[in-house]
């Protein structure tokens, strides 16, 4: 029986993996181990949160610019460690048939190829020929019909965004509309509208433009929203550097190495022309943006 050899070889291979103490060949992981693993996971979670906070604090305190990839790399490495621990112990890969681990490894390879090659394309557009990059109007050119926003004429199911207006800009137009209606009726603005009004005032004043009536009205009742505004806009106000960058900074934010032309372009746009125009030729591929890689 020439093939008997390969037969027993196959079974030996089978016996080789896993522990064949009882008829399942499966190990019972002690409760202690499970607890320790859980502890490690908690620590990992704290570490990634802490890392993010420390970075913000560090950048703010020492006024340094930490490149973006540091943040990404730290967060993702910790996540990778945590998942490995989960896979090895909770999911018992460590004690399991090695083929199961192989399945996971192949899966991760597949994912890596998917992400890697797709990024290769989208990150290298326009490398040789300009026309391969995309020229689009940031956030759309309007002329589309969207579900009705708050404050739309009663009964309207859809509204059409005017030509040349992006969805994001339309959000501001409808916000202004809603704020105007609410203030006219003597109602109370929801938090994000209050913030919007305050920001809008800031933007218009920076441009030296007159305030429309609803913002004037808002100025009169501003006190009412002081708490909200302090919470949502507080930090940004104090930090002149941020204000210069045009960021309204709802939250304290780390100064990253992000210097996308588009970013500053957009900010200046919104400063000097309110929100009537979109940022110019945007969708700049990250080829121009070393920070994003």
């Amino acid at each position: 029986m020439a093939h008997a050899a390969s037969h027993s070889a196959a079974h030996a291979a089978h016996a080789a993996h896993g522990d064949h103490g009882h008829d399942h060949g499966h190990i019972v992981i002690p409760q202690r181990t499970l607890l320790v693993v859980f502890g490690i996971l908690l620590l990992g979670t704290l570490a990634t949160v802490a890392a993010a906070q420390i970075e913000v604090w560090f950048a703010a305190t020492f006024d340094v610019v930490i490149p973006q990839w540091v943040n990404v790399a730290v967060a993702l490495s910790i996540a990778a460690v945590k998942s490995t621990v989960v896979a090895l112990y909770f999911m018992q890969l460590r004690y399991d048939n090695p083929f199961n681990s192989l399945v996971v490894v192949f899966t991760l390879f597949t994912l890596a190829f998917f992400l890697g090659f797709t990024m290769l394309d989208l990150g290298s557009r326009k490398a040789l020929y300009d026309y391969k990059g995309s020229y689009v109007t940031a956030g759309g050119q309007g002329n589309i019909s969207v579900p009705a926003r708050p404050g739309a004429p009663a009964g309207a199911e859809y509204e059409t965004i005017p030509a040349g207006t992006s969805i994001a800009q339309f959000a501001r137009i409808t916000a202004a509309r809603q704020a105007e209606q609410t203030l006219a009726n003597g109602g109370t603005l929801p938090a994000q509208l209050a913030v919007f009004c305050a920001q809008e005032i800031q933007r218009l004043q920076a441009d030296g433009k007159p305030l429309p009536p609803y913002l004037v009205k808002f100025e009169q009742v501003r006190e009412q929203y002081a708490a909200i505004l302090a919470k949502k806009m507080g930090h940004g106000h104090a930090d002149s550097a941020h204000a210069e960058q045009g960021a309204s900074a709802n939250h304290a934010r780390v100064r990253t190495g992000l210097t996308l032309p588009e970013f500053s372009q957009h900010s200046s746009h919104s400063k000097d022309s309110g929100h009537s125009k979109d940022a110019g030729p945007a969708a700049t591929p990250a080829g121009d943006n070393p920070a994003a890689k």
Binding site: A138, G139, G140, I144, V146, P147, R149, P150, S166, I167, A168, Q169, F170, A171, R172, T174, A175, A176, Q192, L193, V195, F196, Q199, A247, S248, N250, F263, H266, S267, D278, A279, A282
Partner: peptide, 12 residues
């Protein structure tokens, strides 16, 4: 198309 939050910083 459902987006209507006005306090954005990037049109994307």
């Amino acid at each position: 198309f459902w987006y209507s939050y006005p306090n954005w910083e990037s049109p994307y």
